[in-house]
Simulated scan of single mutants.
Amino acid sequence: MLIRTEAPADILAVDRLLKSTFETEAEANLVMRLRENGRRTLSLVACNDDGEVVGYVLFSPVTLDGSDLNWQGLAPLAVDEQYRNQGLAAELVKEGFAALYEFGYPACVVLGDPAYYGRFGFIDSEQHQMRCQWDVPQGAFQVLALAEDEFDQRSGLIEYSPEFSDL
C-alpha cells in the first residue's frame, strides 16, 4: 500500500471513492469545492498494488475566534469497503499528522466518533473551552495539539471554511 500526496490525476478516483463511501454526494461535492476555492491544505491518497485509489484524507483550514492560527480540520476520511479494518485509515491519519507537523501546522480538529478519533489522541474540545460552530453531540467535536502547548491560553469558537456550511 502506498500513501502519497493527492495529484491532479487522482481527482476523479477520489470523487468516485467518496461517492461510494458516503450515503450522499455531500462529501465529494465538499472536497471539490475546497479544491476549487484553494482551501485544501493537505490531501493524501492510499493506493493499492495496482495503483487504484482506495483511501483518502483531507485537511483544510479552521479558525479560532476568527484568527488563522494554521490549525487544520480533518474531513473527510474515506477507505474503500474492501480495504476497511486493515489499519489503512489510521495510516492515512498518522501520515497526515506527520506532514502537518513538519510543515508547521500546530493543531487539528475533527467532528466525529470520539471512540474512533480518540485513538489518534483527539480529545473533547470542551476540555480546552473550545466549541464547534454547529450544534453537535457532546464529545463529537475534538481537538489535537500537534505542537506542544498549542492550546495554552486559547479557547473559543472554531470555524471551518465556508464550504462546510453547505453540507
Rank of each mutant, 00 (worst) to 15 (best):
L2W: 03
E6P: 02
A7I: 03
A7G: 00
A7K: 14
P8K: 09
L12D: 13
F22L: 08
E27P: 02
A28D: 07
N29K: 13
L30V: 06
V31I: 11
G38Y: 11
G38L: 12
L44Y: 02
C47P: 03
D49I: 05
G51C: 05
V53Y: 12
V54E: 09
V57H: 01
S60T: 02
S60A: 04
D65C: 13
D68L: 11
W71I: 06
L74W: 08
A75I: 03
P76L: 03
A78D: 01
D80G: 04
R84N: 02
L88W: 02
F97S: 04
Y105P: 05
V110T: 03
L111H: 04
G112E: 12
D113L: 13
D113S: 14
P114L: 12
P114G: 07
Y116M: 10
I123D: 06
E126Q: 15
Q127K: 15
H128P: 05
Q133Y: 13
Q133E: 15
P137V: 02
Q142H: 06
Q142P: 02
L146G: 09
D149V: 00
E150Y: 10
F151P: 01
F151S: 08
D152M: 08
S155A: 13
S155L: 01
G156Y: 08
L157R: 07
L157F: 05
L157K: 07
S161Q: 14
P162I: 00
F164E: 02
F164I: 01
S165E: 14
L167I: 13
